[in-house]
Design a protein around this nucleic acid. Structure first.
Lengths: 205, 205
DNA sequence: CAGTGAACTGTACTTTGGTGCAATTGCTTG
DNA sequence: CAAGCAATTGCACCAAAGTACAGTTCACTG
């Protein structure tokens, strides 16, 4: 997988080079010139006071291209803004090489990565501010009609999983997943998994 | 590093055994008997409605001992409570072995681990509370990539329609609907109509 | 005019999803 | 204990979804 290091001054830190030796270093103004559709990860350094949305519009990313923000001064707001701008991760500019490699691993596999201290901040503020649940979802009502297992399967379907994935996740056969799903469709009066997804996610009756 | 699997019933899932074959399985009531100072990771399964604080007080952990919560029904509140109770990670009870190994790796190195979907929930709620908008590309951004006809088909799919229904609606062949959909999947990097629905409706990715 | 791209369609194929019928296990409750 | 329900799985079958390859038409543009 290709890695691009994007910096205002095109200055690569030693830790970056150690973590990802074969990364391509770019200045921001060279970014437009890269019209490649090649899948890979853009590591974008954010200096003091900058925000991602302004210098790396999310439409600049093709399918299969990911964005990780390296923040000089990481904090709650930077992380939120980065994630909202389509980044798959946000960590400190001066993170150790092992950490950067870890981030790459997680992000490549479709995960989100947030540094430990930042995560604690996020969790902390969420806990403090949350107090109670916001959405009295309609999903609660229909999930209540289902058995425990049916409910698990239904939620996984609602998240976009295939029968094969659900089977692997729950360590059961694909046939069993189908059995549970048929029961769910019957109980909720639905036609297929797409309608189930809409129901669980509160997008329809 | 030692691993302890702690469960109310001392039932080990196959995925756990595959991920960490040499873990020691414990019932919760056997926990007190373990007065070891040995460094390691406690994997504590949380069943429905349970909270960590009640069954695994943080003072039970010695220095060098870490706690990871395996939640049967992971959600925002469970994660918040787990992290607040001193856990270093929280993921789904039925996570795949590769995921569990990934978690172990991160946690052993002093990191915090939260599953991708949970993290998105956390970030989402934080963003909402901070007045930001996470799904900035819910409909418009990704629909902008599509042609007029592709966009129509995509919206109908997002509403739960089948190919046959879409064909009837637009007075074209079912084959043409499939052609448009394949183009949409290609452009947006999606796998099937369910993922498209989630994307259009701003429920995911 | 030549080239391009969107829209449209066909044949044929593979994969995934969903159902019907049947059977086993284990736990719970009258 | 018997009855019932939840969970599990197999086999077979059909329908729906999705892909590969190929082709036409039409409008627009350099």
């Amino acid at each position: 997988m290709q890695h691009w290091m994007v910096d205002r001054e095109a200055i690569a830190l030693p830790s970056w080079q150690e973590a990802i030796p074969n990364a391509i270093l770019l200045r921001r103004d060279q970014l437009a010139a890269i019209s490649s559709e090649e899948p890979g990860i853009f590591w974008c350094r954010l200096r003091h006071g900058e925000i991602v949305g302004a210098i790396f519009p999310r439409k600049a990313l093709s399918a299969g291209q990911l964005l990780v923000v390296l923040a000089d001064e990481p904090n709650e707001l930077v992380v939120s803004e980065a994630l909202a701008s389509g980044a798959s991760g946000c960590c400190n500019t001066h993170s150790a090489p092992e950490v950067l490699r870890q981030v790459a691993l997680v992000v490549e596999n479709g995960g989100l990565w947030i540094g430990q201290s930042l995560l604690r901040q996020l969790v902390g503020s969420t806990s403090r501010l949350l107090g109670m649940r916001l959405p009295a979802r309609s999903s609660e009502d229909c999930l209540a009609l289902l058995s425990e297992r049916e409910s698990q399967v239904a939620r996984l379907v609602a998240g976009g999983a295939s029968n094969k994935e659900i089977a692997a996740q729950l360590s059961i056969t694909e046939r069993t997943v189908k059995a549970h799903l048929s029961a769910v469709f019957e109980k909720l009066g639905l036609r297929d998994r797409l309608q189930l997804s809409l129901k669980i996610n509160g997008m329809s009756i």
